[in-house]
Design a protein around this nucleic acid. Structure first.
Lengths: 76, 76
DNA sequence: ATGTGACTCAAAGTCCGTG
DNA sequence: ACACGGACTTTGAGTCACA
Protein backbone atom coordinates (compact mmCIF):
# COMPACT_ATOMS: atom_id res chain seq x y z
CA UNK A 1 0.00 0.00 0.00
CA UNK A 2 2.81 2.38 0.91
CA UNK A 3 4.56 3.87 -2.04
CA UNK A 4 7.91 5.52 -1.64
CA UNK A 5 7.12 8.94 -0.25
CA UNK A 6 9.60 11.48 0.99
CA UNK A 7 9.33 12.28 4.70
CA UNK A 8 7.94 15.70 3.80
CA UNK A 9 5.22 14.14 1.73
CA UNK A 10 4.31 11.76 4.52
CA UNK A 11 4.07 14.72 6.85
CA UNK A 12 1.85 16.53 4.35
CA UNK A 13 -0.55 13.63 4.09
CA UNK A 14 -0.61 13.13 7.83
CA UNK A 15 -1.33 16.78 8.42
CA UNK A 16 -4.25 16.67 6.04
CA UNK A 17 -5.51 13.47 7.61
CA UNK A 18 -5.37 14.83 11.13
CA UNK A 19 -7.18 17.96 10.04
CA UNK A 20 -9.86 15.87 8.38
CA UNK A 21 -10.29 13.68 11.44
CA UNK A 22 -10.56 16.75 13.61
CA UNK A 23 -13.32 18.31 11.53
CA UNK A 24 -15.13 15.00 11.46
CA UNK A 25 -14.97 14.55 15.23
CA UNK A 26 -16.10 18.12 15.81
CA UNK A 27 -19.32 16.98 14.20
CA UNK A 28 -19.44 13.87 16.33
CA UNK A 29 -19.32 11.62 13.28
CA UNK A 30 -17.76 8.21 12.93
CA UNK A 31 -15.57 7.38 9.95
CA UNK A 32 -18.38 5.13 8.86
CA UNK A 33 -20.85 7.97 8.90
CA UNK A 34 -18.60 10.29 6.93
CA UNK A 35 -17.87 7.52 4.47
CA UNK A 36 -21.59 7.02 3.92
CA UNK A 37 -22.30 10.73 3.58
CA UNK A 38 -19.48 11.31 1.14
CA UNK A 39 -19.79 8.08 -0.80
CA UNK A 40 -16.20 7.06 -0.10
CA UNK A 41 -15.21 3.62 1.11
CA UNK A 42 -14.83 3.39 4.87
CA UNK A 43 -11.46 1.67 4.81
CA UNK A 44 -10.19 4.19 2.29
CA UNK A 45 -11.30 7.12 4.42
CA UNK A 46 -9.45 5.59 7.35
CA UNK A 47 -6.33 5.44 5.23
CA UNK A 48 -6.67 9.09 4.32
CA UNK A 49 -7.02 10.11 7.95
CA UNK A 50 -3.93 8.08 8.80
CA UNK A 51 -1.96 9.90 6.11
CA UNK A 52 -1.47 6.82 4.00
CA UNK A 53 -3.42 7.96 0.97
CA UNK A 54 -2.93 10.74 -1.54
CA UNK A 55 -6.53 11.80 -2.03
CA UNK A 56 -7.53 13.60 -5.22
CA UNK A 57 -9.31 16.91 -5.64
CA UNK A 58 -12.85 15.75 -6.33
CA UNK A 59 -12.83 13.56 -3.26
CA UNK A 60 -11.43 16.38 -1.15
CA UNK A 61 -14.37 18.49 -2.28
CA UNK A 62 -16.80 15.67 -1.56
CA UNK A 63 -15.51 15.46 1.98
CA UNK A 64 -15.69 19.22 2.46
CA UNK A 65 -19.31 19.19 1.34
CA UNK A 66 -20.22 16.30 3.58
CA UNK A 67 -18.62 18.11 6.49
CA UNK A 68 -20.36 21.30 5.43
CA UNK A 69 -17.16 23.26 5.49
CA UNK A 70 -15.14 25.20 2.97
CA UNK A 71 -12.46 23.15 1.25
CA UNK A 72 -9.79 25.54 2.46
CA UNK A 73 -10.61 24.57 6.05
CA UNK A 74 -8.98 21.26 5.27
CA UNK A 75 -5.70 23.08 4.65
CA UNK A 76 -4.47 24.75 7.77
CA UNK B 1 -9.08 11.31 -20.98
CA UNK B 2 -12.60 12.35 -20.25
CA UNK B 3 -14.07 10.05 -17.72
CA UNK B 4 -17.73 10.33 -16.97
CA UNK B 5 -17.87 13.35 -14.71
CA UNK B 6 -21.01 15.02 -13.53
CA UNK B 7 -21.41 18.63 -14.64
CA UNK B 8 -20.80 19.68 -11.04
CA UNK B 9 -17.53 17.85 -10.96
CA UNK B 10 -16.45 19.42 -14.22
CA UNK B 11 -17.28 22.80 -12.76
CA UNK B 12 -15.26 21.99 -9.65
CA UNK B 13 -12.19 21.06 -11.64
CA UNK B 14 -12.55 24.10 -13.87
CA UNK B 15 -12.88 26.40 -10.91
CA UNK B 16 -9.72 25.02 -9.39
CA UNK B 17 -7.93 25.29 -12.73
CA UNK B 18 -8.94 28.89 -13.27
CA UNK B 19 -7.82 29.76 -9.77
CA UNK B 20 -4.48 28.10 -10.37
CA UNK B 21 -4.01 29.90 -13.69
CA UNK B 22 -4.85 33.20 -12.03
CA UNK B 23 -2.28 32.78 -9.29
CA UNK B 24 0.29 31.76 -11.87
CA UNK B 25 -0.37 34.76 -14.07
CA UNK B 26 -0.25 37.09 -11.10
CA UNK B 27 3.37 36.05 -10.86
CA UNK B 28 3.90 36.59 -14.56
CA UNK B 29 4.79 32.96 -15.06
CA UNK B 30 4.17 30.78 -18.09
CA UNK B 31 2.79 27.28 -17.69
CA UNK B 32 6.23 26.13 -18.72
CA UNK B 33 7.87 28.04 -15.92
CA UNK B 34 5.48 26.76 -13.28
CA UNK B 35 5.89 23.25 -14.62
CA UNK B 36 9.64 23.56 -14.24
CA UNK B 37 9.44 25.03 -10.75
CA UNK B 38 7.01 22.41 -9.52
CA UNK B 39 8.48 19.44 -11.34
CA UNK B 40 5.21 18.69 -13.12
CA UNK B 41 4.95 18.16 -16.87
CA UNK B 42 3.80 21.21 -18.80
CA UNK B 43 1.06 19.40 -20.68
CA UNK B 44 -0.19 17.89 -17.45
CA UNK B 45 -0.27 21.28 -15.79
CA UNK B 46 -2.18 22.65 -18.77
CA UNK B 47 -4.72 19.91 -18.35
CA UNK B 48 -5.17 20.81 -14.70
CA UNK B 49 -5.69 24.48 -15.53
CA UNK B 50 -8.28 23.53 -18.12
CA UNK B 51 -10.15 21.44 -15.58
CA UNK B 52 -9.48 18.18 -17.35
CA UNK B 53 -7.45 16.52 -14.62
CA UNK B 54 -8.40 15.52 -11.13
CA UNK B 55 -5.15 16.45 -9.42
CA UNK B 56 -4.24 14.78 -6.14
CA UNK B 57 -3.21 16.30 -2.83
CA UNK B 58 0.56 16.05 -3.06
CA UNK B 59 0.60 17.76 -6.44
CA UNK B 60 -1.71 20.48 -5.16
CA UNK B 61 0.78 21.12 -2.38
CA UNK B 62 3.69 21.15 -4.82
CA UNK B 63 1.98 23.81 -6.86
CA UNK B 64 1.16 25.89 -3.81
CA UNK B 65 4.80 25.82 -2.76
CA UNK B 66 6.05 26.76 -6.19
CA UNK B 67 3.62 29.66 -6.23
CA UNK B 68 4.66 30.54 -2.70
CA UNK B 69 1.11 30.64 -1.51
CA UNK B 70 -0.92 28.80 1.08
CA UNK B 71 -2.73 25.74 -0.30
CA UNK B 72 -6.04 27.18 0.82
CA UNK B 73 -5.55 30.07 -1.62
CA UNK B 74 -6.17 27.55 -4.34
CA UNK B 75 -9.66 27.01 -2.94
CA UNK B 76 -11.56 30.20 -3.06
C1' DA C 1 3.59 29.31 -25.18
C1' DT C 2 -0.46 26.38 -25.00
C1' DG C 3 -4.25 22.71 -26.28
C1' DT C 4 -4.94 18.13 -27.15
C1' DG C 5 -5.23 12.80 -27.89
C1' DA C 6 -3.17 8.82 -27.03
C1' DC C 7 -0.54 6.14 -24.40
C1' DT C 8 1.69 3.33 -20.12
C1' DC C 9 1.68 2.12 -15.45
C1' DA C 10 1.51 3.22 -10.73
C1' DA C 11 -1.66 4.59 -7.65
C1' DA C 12 -6.49 6.00 -6.46
C1' DG C 13 -10.34 4.01 -4.83
C1' DT C 14 -13.84 -0.26 -3.87
C1' DC C 15 -15.33 -4.19 -1.48
C1' DC C 16 -14.62 -8.09 1.06
C1' DG C 17 -12.98 -9.43 5.39
C1' DT C 18 -10.20 -9.80 10.23
C1' DG C 19 -9.04 -8.53 15.23
C1' DA D 1 -15.79 2.20 15.91
C1' DC D 2 -11.38 1.84 13.92
C1' DA D 3 -6.74 -0.22 11.88
C1' DC D 4 -5.34 -3.07 8.62
C1' DG D 5 -5.02 -6.37 4.76
C1' DG D 6 -6.03 -8.89 0.09
C1' DA D 7 -7.88 -8.79 -4.36
C1' DC D 8 -9.78 -6.34 -7.29
C1' DT D 9 -11.23 -2.13 -10.94
C1' DT D 10 -10.73 2.59 -12.34
C1' DT D 11 -8.31 6.66 -12.67
C1' DG D 12 -4.51 9.84 -11.83
C1' DA D 13 0.51 10.63 -12.97
C1' DG D 14 3.53 11.40 -16.21
C1' DT D 15 5.17 11.65 -21.14
C1' DC D 16 5.06 12.49 -26.17
C1' DA D 17 4.07 14.25 -30.82
C1' DC D 18 1.70 17.51 -33.09
C1' DA D 19 -1.43 21.31 -33.98
Amino acid sequence: METTLTPEQKTDLQKFGRRLALLRKERGWSQERLALESGLARSYLGGVERGQRNIALLNILRLARSLECEPNELFS
